[in-house]
Design a protein around this nucleic acid. Structure first.
Lengths: 268, 268
DNA sequence: TCCAGCTTTGGAACGCCGCTCCATGATGGA
DNA sequence: TCCATCATGGAGCGGCGTTCCAAAGCTGGA
């Protein structure tokens, strides 16, 4: 039934307004669709036109639930980050399939020490970024746009609790948590960029080949202008992402414990 | 003389092409204009239309020198970062007006130690970001887009040389430099975001008032969900940017020396 | 001196985007 | 039953990055 054409004389032969949707639109459903679009079509794939098509609606309906595109991107970012942090907070016991605990952790650490929890949080974000290559860009944009938005407190809170649990005196909480958060987001983001670029530039090429090419590019820089880059190019090719990421976290953690826990000189 | 209308039947009465410019266009002049536009009109102010007006030309002329907008943004970012790093490398002796050396540096450090040079590099980027609020966003975008581009090697090289000078064994160069670079870019970027937001949201309001408001917003978060945020809100209001930034760098530096320089346990 | 061929310029136009506006359809209280 | 309100979807606007191309200078060989 194509509906009764009650207004015959209208100038615009409005193709009869499509019947109203039965399944209600909601901010949640919109954000969900946005995340899927970002995942499948990339950062540039999230378009209000693509969104209207996927949700079988018009722009107006979407704008009724969401103020603008920035807010939509923020909401999508927040949703993914919240899920990542929640997942890591709830399942610390079981050794996940991704975190490879081959590397011997420091000996004097209890299994659920704050250090371990911080590593779990970091890897949670690391994995989320790997699953959603658009995440680091949006995180950076959101940190620049509104540092007090919803995402920043979320991450700071998760990391900060463990900083407190470490025994860091209150006066240094902000410094310690900042150092951790900035390192985690920066390193995870750059790593994801490597993966994403490998995928984008040559779909068939795997990570190793890509890193090989990038390493070679670095080695071809003028050794006079870039002696250090030249030297670390080899390391870059061989490095293991997660191991390297963990090593960086340990650097920051060691710095925190050494500087802010005068009682426990040295490591851990 | 309105031109010899050789093609009489042409539909377009081309209003006589404007005479050719005397001052040659060049990639450098375009990048320079782009930086100025970004500085004065903000991130959204850099438009090919605005650029054509400022350079009194058409899009085609610009596209002759620059492939696309991304390349232009990368070039602008690279130019600013190169200037910042060059400035810091050339003038380490004189205590700059900005870096306030009231805080007593660690005693056992020579005046031009690698640590000091790293701090100088960091503050160079910190200042550049303060002068160009669009920089952190572009840095993040460029790190995500092409980590092996021109900017990343530049920063890595500057920091990496000092890491090497610290005596870090070669196997840990990449880890140590990464930790430093990620912290520096992340913290400087977030700090700039605070300043920029303070300016944007209320032009008359100064930084202190803004941080006051942001701190209050954090304090109003549910203490049950965000106990840590709630607790550090006060610190956020009182903190001094550069001091905090320096403290974070020292955390990472301490971690590097403690973990990777077994000979020199403890600090510096 | 002239002209062919190259580089460089500026402007018109294209397709897509975020976003606004508004007529319409549903809904629930009076 | 009627109406105020919520919610929807489509048409369209202004602006963006980008492309295309005719024209204008330049350069060197005849």
């Amino acid at each position: 039934m194509l509906q009764s054409c009650q207004n015959g004389g209208m100038a615009t032969a409005r193709t009869r307004r499509s019947p109203r949707r039965t399944d209600a639109l909601s901010r949640e459903r919109i954000v969900e669709a946005a995340v899927e679009l970002l995942d499948t079509a990339g950062e540039g794939g999230l378009t209000f036109r693509a969104l209207t098509e996927r949700l079988a609606t018009g722009p107006g309906a979407i704008y009724w639930h969401v103020a603008n595109k920035d807010e939509l991107l923020d909401a999508a970012t927040d949703a993914v980050v919240a899920a990542a942090l929640a997942a890591e907070c709830l399942e610390p016991p079981k050794p996940t399939k991704r975190a490879d605990p081959t590397k011997p952790t420091k000996p004097a650490e209890s299994p659920d020490s704050p250090q371990d929890k911080i590593r779990a949080i970091a890897f949670g974000l690391f994995d989320a970024i790997e699953d959603h290559p658009w995440l680091p860009t949006q995180l950076a944009l959101q940190l620049s746009r509104s540092p007090w938005g919803s995402v920043t407190p979320r991450i700071f809170e998760s990391v900060g609790r463990q900083v407190r649990a470490l025994g860091v005196p209150e006066g240094h909480w902000f410094t310690a948590a900042s150092a951790l958060v900035h390192y985690i987001l920066g390193a995870a983001g750059q790593n994801a960029a490597n993966n994403a670029s490998a995928r984008t530039l040559a779909p068939g090429v795997d990570r190793a080949q890509f890193l090989d090419a990038a390493s070679k590019a670095w080695q071809e820089l003028d050794p006079d202008d870039y002696p250090f880059i030249h030297a670390v190019a080899a390391q870059m090719r061989e490095h293991d992402d997660r191991e390297q990421f963990l090593a960086g976290i340990d650097v920051v953690l060691t710095g925190i414990t050494a500087l802010h826990l005068p009682g426990e000189r040295g490591r851990t």
